[in-house]
């Protein structure tokens, strides 16, 4: 089970980076980056998954004493929780820059931005 999500995550990273590298449109590049971002999150969560265990929340069905034997690894989940939020912030930043670039050249085609090309 975890292997499937792990493979999906790695695949999403590859697809996302391929898209970001080959696409000419800034919007499509940003979509590529967000796909890669989801892939990374999926990989981290999949690593913390353990078969037959439950979510790391103590309640009536999961007494505190049984937690070490019955919960999945909570650390990757905490890491992904923060990574998702940072991902949103980075995406918003990319969109703002894309807007500014569009304003400068009236196009989103990356090949028209040649000022920093060597």
């Amino acid at each position: 089970m975890a292997q499937i999500s792990l493979a999906t995550g790695f695949l999403l990273i590859l697809i996302g980076f391929y898209g970001a590298l080959t696409q000419r449109n800034l919007m499509r590049m940003i979509v590529g980056f967000t796909i890669a971002d989801s892939g990374v999150n999926l990989v981290i969560v999949a690593i913390g998954y353990m078969h037959g265990r439950t979510a790391p929340i103590i309640d009536s069905t999961l007494p505190a004493g049984e937690a070490p034997a019955r919960i999945i690894d909570p650390v990757p989940q905490a890491l992904v929780l923060t990574a998702i939020v940072i991902g949103v912030g980075v995406t918003a930043l990319m969109l703002a820059y894309a807007y500014k670039l569009y304003q400068a050249k009236r196009t989103l085609d990356i090949s028209t931005f040649t000022e920093l090309k060597w």
Partner: peptide
């Protein structure tokens, strides 16, 4: 977590 911090959600 439960005995030290008293939180039900370990994450």
């Amino acid at each position: 977590t439960a005995q030290d911090l008293g939180a039900a959600n370990i994450v």
